[in-house]
């Protein structure tokens, strides 16, 4: 462990940049004065306020995605020192304990829009595919929802915290642009809606969406996903559950033939 960083220290930040989707990536190095309480977002803000590289070249500010700045919107996923995580909850003091330099790069499993901004629309499309919603009859006032026990709530809430950040998809060996695998996050959402007393009524629709190519059987059970999820979504549990339920669903369909 190094000594606490003092004011006056200069951070070296290595950023992998790319001007447009079709362009070649390149690297730029920036020097940013250290401040206490800094996170990676404030490092990027400092670069925007003075977009000059370490060798004195004026450049454009680095483009990146963020909104909430408190690890709840899912926007700011990136590779920080090679590890996928949220930039907003990544504190500089912690990074400095790993080494003197900070490196930032975009996620690799999604198309780069510019610099650290990637296009994750594939994840939102997947939520349509697994019909991740409760098909209520109407929004009119027809009374309260079903009674739910604390136990059920405690099973659903952690699944419902998924912020579609894509960290789990990034580390999944089965998920990439050459494969159709839907990825861990949407599978967990299917599991969530199948737990809900009303969602259950349309459980087979969700299961069937996960039974074909690109579905649950493409998961190699590497369990990389669950290790990186910043919201601790119980991905392995959900994958196991959907795996079992799709098997039962297949048997049911075979019997009904």
């Amino acid at each position: 462990m190094s000594t606490p960083t003092s004011a006056g220290t200069i951070l070296t930040v290595r950023v992998r940049r790319q001007d447009r989707p079709q362009d070649r990536p390149y690297t730029q190095i920036f020097e940013v004065p250290y401040q206490s309480d800094m996170n990676v977002i404030s490092v990027l803000q400092a670069i925007a306020a003075r977009p000059v590289t370490a060798d004195g070249q004026a450049t454009t500010p680095v483009a990146w995605d963020c909104n909430c700045l408190e690890e709840v919107c899912g926007a700011c996923s990136m590779l920080i020192n090679g590890r996928v995580r949220q930039a907003c909850s990544c504190l500089v003091d912690e990074l400095l304990r790993q080494g003197p330099e900070i490196s930032l790069a975009p996620l690799t499993k999604f198309p780069v829009v510019r610099d650290l901004v990637v296009d994750r629309s594939r994840m939102f499309e997947a939520l349509k595919k697994v019909r991740a919603w409760i098909p209520v009859d109407t929004y009119a006032d027809i009374g309260p929802g079903p009674t739910i026990s604390t136990e059920q709530q405690e099973q659903m809430y952690p699944l419902s915290r998924c912020m579609t950040c894509g960290c789990c998809m990034e580390v999944c060996p089965q998920f990439n642009d050459a494969s159709d695998f839907i990825g861990p996050a949407p599978i967990a959402q299917a599991a969530l809606f199948n737990l809900n007393p009303v969602g259950k009524m349309t459980a087979s629709e969700r299961l069937r969406a996960l039974m074909g190519p690109g579905g649950i059987t493409d998961c190699g059970n590497a369990q990389n996903c669950v290790k990186v999820c910043p919201k601790e979504v119980p991905l392995t549990w959900a994958i196991g559950k959907i795996g079992r339920d799709t098997t039962i669903e297949a048997v049911k369909r075979w019997l009904l033939k």
Binding site: D141, G145, I148, S149, T150, Q152, Q153, M156, V198, G199
Partner: peptide, 20 residues
């Protein structure tokens, strides 16, 4: 009514021991 609707839409509200 707004909360009843949210409840029906599947918002995992915390529950009382009796399920309220």
């Amino acid at each position: 009514k707004v909360v009843d609707l949210a409840d029906r839409l599947g918002v995992p509200f915390n529950r009382s021991p009796e399920g309220n």
